[in-house]
């Protein structure tokens, strides 16, 4: 199985890679191939070394590139050869207050959270179409389900990805290509892990990664809320009438 992880240095991307590594027994590891893509070569090499300790018989390749440049992205994806799984993880949590005050922050948010994942998604879709099969997953967010004053710069970019993925799901509906948009709820960062009693509301990246890997492997299409409870929470948030919603501080 050959897996490409775009932004493999992100918390969720790395947690998913580790989960795949753990799922393959020593005997089967030689069938496992990772390609780790990202901006920072040194950081990618750290992730690769870690994976090789966990799965010594697997193959791990790293590829650093300019993730905002459409030609670099296309060349990188073309260079991947036959591929079974692609997981697109890049994105950064835009600070809403800064985005309102500083257009540079806003522009950067759109490039990192919209432009880059879109370029990867479309290039990989083209590859999977040619192969006639493949599993594509994109990390969105529950923040994309409804624009809120506290984080709409970030949320809107995730809403864009949701609609894009929806279109891809439709396009590949009767093929062997599965497309999945993943909407994690607030997930613990590495920072919160050092608290002896971390806030119960934050999901552990390992748990989120486990659900992601399981859903991708099973060929799930459409949308995955993880942890699952966020499906119910966001259903309510989406259905709240505006006259109520607009009065709540969210």
């Amino acid at each position: 199985m050959k897996i490409a992880i775009v932004s493999a240095t992100s918390t969720i991307g790395q947690a998913a890679a580790r989960k795949w590594a753990a799922n393959f027994s020593i005997q089967k590891q030689s069938e496992l191939q990772f390609v780790l893509l990202g901006r920072n070569q040194t950081a990618l090499e750290t992730v690769a070394a870690d994976l090789l300790v966990r799965a010594p018989k697997a193959q791990v390749q790293v590829m650093s590139l300019d993730m905002l440049d459409r030609q670099s992205v296309e060349a990188a994806v073309n260079g991947l050869g036959q591929l079974d799984v692609a997981l697109i993880c890049q994105g950064e949590l835009t600070d809403q207050v800064s985005a309102q005050a500083d257009s540079a922050v806003l522009a950067n948010s759109v490039m990192v959270n919209v432009l880059s994942p879109t370029l990867f998604a479309e290039a990989i879709a083209r590859k999977f179409e040619a192969q006639g099969k493949g599993k594509l997953a994109i990390i969105g967010s529950v923040a994309g389900d409804r624009g809120r004053k506290s984080n709409y710069a970030y949320g809107a970019s995730k809403a864009y990805l949701a609609a894009y993925a929806q279109g891809l799901v439709h396009r590949f509906a009767s093929t062997k290509v599965s497309v999945l948009l993943i909407k994690p709820g607030p997930t613990a960062s590495r920072m919160t892990l050092s608290l002896p009693n971390p806030p119960a509301k934050l999901a552990a990246p390992e748990l989120v990664a486990e659900q992601i890997v399981k859903s991708i492997d099973s060929g799930k299409r459409g949308v995955l809320y993880t942890p699952t409870i966020w499906f119910a929470i966001m259903l309510i948030v989406r259905l709240l009438p505006s006259f109520i919603f607009n009065k709540i501080n969210l």
Partner: peptide, 14 residues
């Protein structure tokens, strides 16, 4: 201040 090692969670070699 506490300087946390939480982000340093990688294996390096075995």
């Amino acid at each position: 201040k506490l300087l946390s090692s939480a982000a340093l969670d990688n294996f390096i070699s075995f």
